[in-house]
Every structure is written in C-alpha cells, then in structure tokens.
Design a protein around this nucleic acid. Structure first.
Lengths: 203, 203
DNA sequence: ATTGTTTTTGACCAAACGGTCAAGATCACG
DNA sequence: CGTGATCTTGACCGTTTGGTCAAAAACAAT
C-alpha cells in the first residue's frame, strides 16, 4: 500500500496542481457539471495522467472537500471563550468574511454541494461540524447567561454569520449585478455586518 | 408560428406536469446534473414526449427560471412606501421566509444557478432585479432620511434579507444536520430574524 | 365511419463522458 | 552509462447523454 502523503516532489506538485484545477472547475460547474477533460485542460495535464494521481473523478472531489473542511471551520474554532464576547463574535464575522474574499471558489464549492443535498458530505456535517457548533453555541450561551451579550439563539446566530458572509462569495454575480459597477461589495459588507452584529448583540 | 400560451387542455396539463417534474429534478441536481430521462420519469412521460412540448433541455430550464423570477420578486414588490417602515420591512422578511418554507425547490434552483455564475440568468439580474432593488432601496433611503429607521445601507439591507431567509431553504441539510432532530428551523428562524431586524432597524 | 390533426413512442444516432491499458518517455541513482 | 522505477500519453472502450424520426396511437370534427 502507498502511504497517503505523496512521496516524490513531482507527485506533490502534480497532485496540488490537479486539486487547484479541480477546485476551479468544480466550483464553477458543480460535480456533475465538471468533466475530467476540463480539469485536465485547466491543470495542463492529460486525462489519463489525472487518473494516475487520483483513482477517479469522485476521489478528486472528496479529497478537495475534506481538505477544505478544516479551513472552513477554523474561524469558528478560533472563537475564544475567555475573550471579550462582542469583540470575539465580531472578529469571527470578519474572519469569515475574509474567507469569502480570499477563497470564493472554496465557498462556492461547498455551497454547490450543500444546495444539492450534500450527498458526499452529510457525514462530515453531522459529526465534525455539528460538534464544533454545539461546543461554541455553549460558549455563546454562557455569555448570554452572564448578560454580556443580548439573548439570541446561539445556533441561529451562527447560521446568520454563515448566511451573511458566504452570501458575498456564493452570490457574487447577483450582488454585483444589483450594485452595478464601482462597488467593492466585500468592503461595504464589512461595515454593514459590523453594524448589524453590534446592534444585534448589544446587551 | 405557435402562440406561446398552450392551446389545448392536454397541452396545458402536460407542460405544467413537465415543468413541475423538471423543477424537482433540476433543483436537486442542477442543470447539468439533471437528465431528460430523470425528468421524463418524474413526469411519467417518455423522453421524446418531453421534446414534443419543449424544444430542448435548456428550453425547459429557461422556461422554469423566467416563470419563477416573478414569484421570487413579488415579496419585495409588495413593500409599501406609504406603510409603517419597520413593520413593512419585517413583513417583507416574513414573506421571504414564507417562500423558503413553501418553495424550497424554487429557492435551490436559483441558488444553484447563481452559485454557478448565472450563465442563463445574468441578463434578468442586471435588468428586472436591479431596477426593482434600486427602486426599493430609494424607498428605504427615504425612510432613513426621515429618521424612521436606523441608518444602514439599503442595498446591503436587502442582501441581508435574501441571505438570511434563503439560507434556510438552500442550506437546509446543513441547518438540520447541525441542529439535530426535534427542531423546526423555519419557525425558529422567524423569531430570530424578527429580533435581528428589529434591533438593526430601530431608529 | 372517415378523415385530418394532435399526441405518443420505440428505435436509433452522434457526441461526450469516466475510465482502462499497453507502450513509450523521463527520471533517479549506482 | 545503464537500469529499474516513476511518470506520461494516444488509442480505445462501454455507457450515458441530448436529441431525431418515422410510424403508430389517440383524439376531434363532420
């Protein structure tokens, strides 16, 4: 059996080239909408060559998803129970918004998968994601009990952060179409969301 | 040339059967993920029969999209400039949330299309949608100038309504996975969003 | 019943798809 | 340089896909 981490440097380079190309293509067209030929073209490799590094199209997709889940959860993981509640939550919003700015393809990849019922991800959602959210919801509930922030449902508070921040990555075309030219949606969103959450959370 | 509205009652019935089946399949798998055989199966018709009523797969999809755009914009259209500002906006949120409850397939269909760059819809976004949003943003700006609601960016306020309400339809699997069993996400969302927007908008 | 129109379908097609394979090119290393 | 391992690819395969078509079935009108 081969150890999972690639051995040679050429393997390392090609695997990451493929994953980057796959991210580009999958995030634009979804799993079924993407083709191996597109990914191969984007990566500058031949199709059989892709399948030398990954056993199947689905394997590429799953590798991508699980590698990204970590990045995606990190901002919430960093929420510090011993920090100042309101500033902690606002910092979380900013980190999440930063992901929408820096990794829109990753965001759209997740969105695509979840909108279609997360057939290849439901497990991760019900385990990793749920346990992290439940833990942090507990922290927030503590802050509420201490009267440090307003009384709102912690789970739905977290959902609202996801919805509001990811909207700017996932629905980027719509946002830009409505705003017209001459806007920096993400910059405006940062101000707006800061206001929104300050007003919502003020005790 | 055929007039657009179907002539016979059997045409009327079959076209709507097909569109409903197509909505079911497209919303679950996206445009490319859906197949004519799936739609035909769902509709209880043969594949060539579909293509007797619609010239192509894409024609079915586009018919669906444009028919739905109206439904989708209605809640915003009903925003009454002469009403009580805060209650008007909260009613808009409730109408939008009601769409997520009653028409989750339609919501996911839009989400799917927009996440993938709206290749078949960008035109509608930049015309119909933009002009309606701009108009209503003007109304909101008026309310702000009169000091009836807090000073927030009208466009991003509208985006936040979309993001927060559609999240519960589009990311339903994720919401349910995180909440676990024994929850009514939409009911909880109604309470949460009422609180959120009241606090955001209070002058 | 006859006739003309609308509706339905089985058989079929070319293209695109994910994936295989054997043979060739390139590389690492003594 | 030689040689074994790694890497690359053109040709190919079976299946699925969107779409066609001619002929049959169902319907409508007299």
């Amino acid at each position: 059996m081969n150890a999972n981490p690639p051995r040679t440097r050429i393997q390392k380079k090609n695997r990451s080239t493929i994953l980057d190309a796959a991210l580009e293509v999958f995030s634009r067209h979804g799993f079924r909408g993407a083709t191996l030929d597109q990914i191969a073209g984007e990566a500058g490799l031949s199709k059989p060559n892709l399948l030398y590094y990954f056993p199947s199209k689905e394997a590429i997709f799953i590798t991508l998803l699980s590698g990204l889940m970590e990045t995606w959860l990190d901002p919430l993981r960093e929420l510090d129970p011993s920090g100042e509640p309101i500033e902690e939550l606002l910092a979380y919003v900013r980190r999440k918004l930063q992901l929408s700015r820096d990794f829109p393809r990753e965001s759209r990849l997740f969105a695509n998968e979840i909108v279609q019922g997360a057939p290849r991800m439901e497990h991760l959602l019900a385990t990793d994601l749920k346990s992290l959210v439940d833990e942090k919801a507990g922290v927030i509930r503590g802050w509420i009990a201490e009267g440090q922030i307003a009384d709102v449902d912690p789970h739905h508070l977290i959902f609202s952060v996801w919805a509001l921040t990811q909207h700017y990555a996932d629905f980027d075309v719509q946002v830009r179409a409505v705003l017209g030219p001459g806007h920096d949606p993400l910059a405006e969103a940062e101000t707006f969301l800061d206001t929104l959450f300050r007003r919502l959370l003020a005790p």
